[in-house]
């Protein structure tokens, strides 16, 4: 599918989604519409975005967000879905790990490094750092006075 068709299709599912064209078609959705969109992306036979090749957590400064890179092994089109939450103290987003199993580890990583809790995730634990680690290192406001020397 071309980007035009994708744009149309996604607007049908979630009319509120903000769609821009960058390197990939970028779909930004509010967390509340997120779960109406995501299952459709995989199950819809025209979209068939069955392969999630990357999940990135991003700290936008005022908000914490997650970007999902999806591609279809059948048609070859690729989109980027973004959601963000402005709650920095106790950020919570929906998990997609029952749709794309690879998200399970990636979401654990994002929880570890950004502190975003994913609802309904079966195993929400830290993955890289120790369980008693303080803070979430990839956030922009993370300070470690011992190991991070500012120049």
């Amino acid at each position: 599918m071309t980007n035009e068709e994708l744009r149309k299709k996604i607007s049908e599912i979630v009319p509120q989604a903000v769609i821009e064209e960058q390197q990939y078609l970028t779909v930004s959705v509010e967390p509340k519409y997120f779960m109406t969109l995501m299952p459709k992306l995989k199950s819809d036979s025209d979209l068939a975005l069955d392969y999630m090749f990357n999940v990135s957590g991003v700290d936008y400064g005022d908000a914490l967000g997650v970007s999902y890179f999806l591609t279809s092994t059948k048609y070859g089109h690729t989109i980027l879905v973004k959601q963000k939450t402005s709650d920095r103290t106790k950020p919570e987003l929906e998990t997609v790990c029952h749709i794309w199993k690879t998200a399970e580890f990636h979401e654990r990583e994002i929880f570890d490094l950004y502190g975003i809790t994913f609802k309904n995730h079966p195993d929400m634990r830290r993955i890289f750092l120790e369980d008693d680690w303080n803070g979430h290192p990839l956030r922009k406001d993370y300070v470690d006075e011992v190991n991070m020397i500012l120049r």
Binding site: F53, N54, S56, G57, V58, D59, K101, T102, E104, F105, H106, E109
Partner: peptide, 13 residues
């Protein structure tokens, strides 16, 4: 922000 998607991470899962 620079995110590295490492193949092993997904393979391990």
């Amino acid at each position: 922000r620079l995110k590295l998607r490492s193949p092993n991470f997904s393979n391990l899962s």
